[in-house]
Design a protein around this nucleic acid. Structure first.
Length: 298
DNA sequence: CGCTTGGTACACCTTACCTCA
DNA sequence: GCTGAGGTAAGGTGTACCAAG
């Protein structure tokens, strides 16, 4: 009764919990999406087709030399449910035991029973086989979270405990996040370097411009935020008379007018080139954002 | 209706083991 | 054979959410 309530209620809750981690994920129930046809499985892939589904072959699959059920943890887990009809999971599933019920029982026991281990205090380090890891990886590509049914199905297919599948997905998510964090950090470092270099260059150019100070450097006395560009020659045109004529800091040539010698085109890596950014015909006081953050996929 | 409690899943951190150079 | 670094399975803890009482 208690367990029924817990299962019925929690299963819905679990699915919601699963969706919470990945809102756009579609949660297909059995059969699990990433399940491959047997033909496409790698040679030696330890599954056999049973009733159209892939079943783990306990004879073929040797999980780190600790056959399922002989694992001390598994033994402890089962022993925690003395009233359960499950004596070995999933060995007795074929005996009419409701799969979901048995799996939930095993899951509950396996996730809580490890403290009662009698391993002499040593934690077993079970290494997943390449095939198991590859299959889990494929599943993870499909979706990075599992609902309880999918977890159980995966566990059954791979002949692992549901807890192992769960832990693998947790660790896999953590690795993904760590990797993404490293990518983001690297990107921010590059941005920082770029901005630092730009800053250095701009300061240098400002110094040079100040050094060119002339007797009537009216435009030079204007705040940098008001400097404008000639759209035809794409450079700052320090022409005081034009400034006066336009009534603003903007200085423009006609399309056919050649720039004067006094407005020699500066190097491409100058303030002018920055200002010539089509988005920034007028310096607005903030540095142009030339960098675009790469997508997470890159 | 609001609160409490129990269950569950997850993120995050840590530990312990394994592999390899 | 020893050792340190890196990878990874698994344990522990805190948090959020949900359903039932």
């Amino acid at each position: 009764m208690e367990e029924d309530r817990g299962k019925q209620g929690s299963l819905e809750g679990k699915e919601i919990e699963a969706m919470r981690g990945n809102p756009i994920v579609q949660l297909n129930l059995l059969p699990l999406a990433p399940v491959q046809s047997q033909e496409s499985l790698p040679i030696g892939f330890p599954w056999t087709a049973v009733n159209g589904n892939l079943e783990a072959s306990t004879k073929l699959l040797d999980v780190n030399q600790t056959p399922f059920g002989e694992d001390a943890e598994e033994g402890a887990a089962i022993s925690l449910s003395p009233n359960s009809s499950i004596s070995s999971f999933p060995m007795e599933l074929a005996g009419g035991m409701d799969f979901a019920t048995a799996a939930v029982e095993a899951e509950r026991a396996s996730s809580k029973g490890s403290d009662d281990e009698d391993n002499g205090g040593a934690r077993k380090k079970l290494r997943l086989s390449k095939e198991q890891s590859a299959f889990l990886e494929e599943s993870f590509k499909e979706q990075n979270t599992l609902n309880p049914k999918q977890k159980l199905a995966l566990a059954k297919q791979l002949n692992l405990r549901p807890r192992q599948v769960e832990v693998w997905f947790q660790n896999r998510r953590a690795r993904t996040k760590l990797k993404q964090t490293e990518v983001d950090c690297e990107y921010l470092k590059r941005c920082c370097d770029t901005l630092r270099e730009e800053n250095r260059r701009l300061r240098k150019e400002l110094t040079e411009l100040r050094a060119l100070k002339t007797p009537q450097p009216f435009y030079m006395q204007l705040p940098a935020t008001t400097l404008s560009m000639c759209p035809s020659c794409e450079r700052v045109a320090p022409n005081p008379t034009s400034v006066a004529a336009t009534g603003s800091a903007g200085i423009f040539h006609s399309r056919n007018e050649k720039p004067s010698a006094a407005t020699e085109k500066p190097p491409a890596t100058s303030i002018s080139s920055l200002i010539s950014n089509p988005h920034l015909h007028r310096v607005s006081g903030s540095l142009p954002t030339s960098a675009h953050k790469p997508s997470a996929a890159s």
